[in-house]
Design a binder for these strands. Structure first.
Lengths: 238, 238
DNA sequence: GTCTATATGACGATAGAC
DNA sequence: GTCTATCGTCATATAGAC
């Protein structure tokens, strides 16, 4: 009896391999022809199968986009998790921490423009990521909030502004670098980009306004030279 | 003799009207279905004609995108030209000038998400704007360079950094706000957006680092990016 | 279970009649 | 300048071979 259903995991593993293989090809083609220019026929052609066979593994073209989105979100989340732990453990200043985090994040985005466009822009009409695919992106934001709260705790960043606002402004400047680099110099890599090169000055700018030593934001009025007057209000207290 | 070619401008005016009308419909549809999701069949349907008739006015779908790009570029250029003249004439500080310029630019982008995506992102696979369509965008950058040079001359912005670098960093933060707002809260307008609301704090941040009173950037050492060991190197000296 | 064969309808684009 | 007719390709759906 057990024999007839003996090796379901083998089949499933085989199936999973096929899914990953299709995804690999699809991502390659998106890199060549643009994210929204993906053709299932071309995917099938590259794999040596007929287009309808793809529907065994993906219910629709958008399901393929969703899987790509999920893979990219997971990848950047893992990378960011690892990086933030290292940075929290070893960084000596806000400048250093932000430079390292920004560098890792931006480098990944420029190295993976397809993921970056899929995750940060909306290039595919009609496609919305499912909550499952989107989940790592949410976790990524929470990770960011924790990191910024930790920097506030260390008095690296001012505490009279909510960590959420600090993080929002940080995402603005980082996504600004990525967005400008990808749209103005799409073929240039992280090392030689004109906009990626702005990261140090952008970090300095950020810290000039949000570091504890230089409260340049609309003054909190209550002398914020050292600490907050009535405690910080943070999104993810520890 | 003159009679046989008597009214060419009438025909041409009529033709131009048709072109504008087609463009209007196309932009509406892009707003509804996404920039890359434009369908020529749907455009023709809305106009009560057959799809092939569109080819009398536009050589291809990309030619239509090109015309849309040109129209958007011209519109934002005119807006920016007007605004920068007013700001140069009346603003009293870097903070005020940048807040006004940023506000006008971002508001336009959020109010015209189709133009913004077409101009600032690359949502349509295979489409590259022609030099003619792109020209106002170049002029816009030159306008920005002049504005920043003028602010340096007034000692509103530090002069130990090239105006081009100041402008580059400014485009980064502004495009960051636009990019984040359009991708995270696409349906929210300028007034209520979470990221558009960050403009004042972003401007303060920018001025904290690049205003003359607070040189927070890595002190004018041997320059951060390339050469230029001394003096400011500006793109458009006056 | 996995694939092929085949079909449908929409798409961008072209040719040619009127 | 507009039409009809048509082509090749696309995403997608279904039926059925192995």
């Amino acid at each position: 009896m057990a024999e007839s259903v003996a090796i379901p995991d083998r089949r499933q593993r085989r199936r999973q391999e096929s899914i990953e293989e299709i995804l690999d090809v699809a991502l390659e083609l998106m890199a060549e022809q643009g994210v929204a220019g993906l053709s299932l026929g071309e995917v099938a052609r590259q794999l040596g199968i007929r287009p309808p066979s793809l529907y065994v593994y993906f219910a629709s073209k958008n399901a393929l986009y969703d899987a790509a989105f999920a893979r990219g979100a997971k990848e950047i989340y893992d990378l960011y998790l690892d990086a933030s732990q290292q940075v929290i453990a070893t960084a000596q200043s806000a400048d250093e921490a932000l430079l390292r985090m920004g560098s890792i994040f931006i480098r990944w985005a420029i190295d993976h423009p397809v993921y970056a466009q899929l995750l940060f822009w909306r290039p595919v009409p009609g496609f919305e990521p499912t909550p499952e695919a989107y989940q790592p992106a949410v976790a990524l934001m929470e990770l960011g909030a924790e990191l910024f709260a930790a920097m506030q705790d260390r008095r690296w960043l001012r505490s009279d502004v909510a960590a959420d606002d600090l993080l929002r402004d940080w995402t603005i400047v980082i996504s600004g670098i990525i967005s400008q680099q990808l749209s103005n110099e799409p073929e240039v890599d992280f090392t030689s980009g004109r906009f990626t090169a702005a990261l140090p000055s952008i970090v300095t700018m950020y810290v000039a306004a949000n570091g504890v030593t230089t409260p340049a934001r609309k003054p909190a009025r209550k002398s914020t030279t050292t600490s907050a007057t009535k405690e910080s209000r943070r999104a993810h207290p520890r």
